[in-house]
């Protein structure tokens, strides 16, 4: 459980001056995640918005050791760092306790980096992988990923005359990672900062690999006013589009159950990427999205024994 007063006293490990867009949720997620750290930490990051906006040579926003090597291998790279730590600690060359966090966007995690993530988790490295999921390849200009929700218009799944945005539903990566039977898996969002920071604390505390999927809206790709980032995140939770839950040693638990589950329609309406769904003839897509959310939510509640 995080305490706001204590958190404000902690040093910002991702310092200001980075080049992320106003309203970008990625640096908010990173700052919150690093607030959960009490020991020295080494951070790895996949190629993507977070990396390009925070490490423009000769500057860096990272007050912690940081490595970026390529796009699809944040997990593999940090697994090597963690292996080096174990080797050097065994030899007495390092005495401090150090934690390891790998970041990647949904492109670097769900798609191109999925193999290296799966491998690193299976090998049992003592590391936390945090996916900041902005639901498309935002760094290259908003192309669809397997995390892009059905119906969203992106530059490679544009809403056209015959195809109304992305046809497929999104991949449920959090559940896929839970199926790796690692000690800790969670889904979170920075609008619910206490829930998120607590999850990062738990993920760091377990021995072995942990995975957290954190929703990080992109105001350019999702097309909303940059002042509304936090509201958009809240909406994702209140509609159960993005349920907050954790899987601790195989036990599923919903960590935040909205008092009233809101229809997804109102949330979609606030985002330009779904604008075309409100045109005549596309109503059925909104219904399909709602039906999918309902089905997934009920399945989650059943899994978590909270139905």
């Amino acid at each position: 459980m995080a305490n706001l007063r204590d958190l404000t006293k902690k040093e910002e490990l991702l310092c200001g001056g980075h080049r992320a867009c106003a309203g970008c949720a990625a640096p908010i997620a990173v700052r919150q995640a690093l607030k959960a750290v009490d020991t020295p930490v080494v951070v790895g990051c996949a190629t993507g918005c977070l990396e390009v906006t925070t490490t423009i040579y000769p500057f860096t926003s990272w007050r912690v050791p940081f490595i970026h090597s390529a796009f699809e291998n944040s997990a593999a790279t940090i697994s090597g760092v963690e292996a080096a730590y174990r080797a050097l600690k065994k030899k007495g060359k390092i005495t401090r306790d150090i934690q390891f966090i790998a970041f990647g966007g949904d492109g670097g995690t769900y798609d191109i980096g999925f193999q290296s993530l799966s491998g690193a988790m299976e090998r049992g490295h003592d590391m936390v992988y945090i996916c900041y999921d902005n639901e498309a390849y935002m760094n290259t200009g908003i192309q669809r990923s397997s995390a892009t929700p059905k119906g969203a218009s992106t530059t490679t799944s544009p809403a056209g005359k015959v195809i109304p945005g992305k046809v497929q539903f999104r991949k449920d990566l959090t559940a896929v990672m839970a199926a790796h039977n690692i000690p800790y898996v969670a889904q979170a969002v920075p609008s619910h900062w206490n829930d998120f920071i607590t999850k990062v604390q738990k993920a760091l505390a377990v021995k072995g690999p942990a995975f957290i999927n954190v929703l990080a809206p992109c105001r350019l790709g999702w097309q909303f006013d940059p002042a509304e980032t936090i509201d958009i995140m809240r909406g994702a939770v209140e509609t159960c589009f993005w349920p907050l839950y954790e899987v601790e040693n195989g036990v599923w638990r919903v960590t935040h159950k909205p008092r009233e589950k809101k229809p997804v329609r109102g949330w979609l309406e606030k985002q330009g990427r779904f604008r075309h769904l409100f045109r005549p003839g596309n109503e059925h897509i909104i219904e399909e999205i709602q039906a999918d959310i309902d089905r997934n939510w009920e399945a989650l509640l059943a899994r978590a024994g909270a139905a």
Binding site: S69, T77, G80, S116
Partner: peptide, 22 residues
């Protein structure tokens, strides 16, 4: 520490991480 990676891409990536770690 022998890291039994799932591909050569990850082999070189992990080796890079380890080497950068000193």
């Amino acid at each position: 520490e022998f890291v039994t990676v799932e591909s050569e891409h990850s082999a070189m990536s992990a080796t890079i991480g380890a080497s950068a770690a000193g």
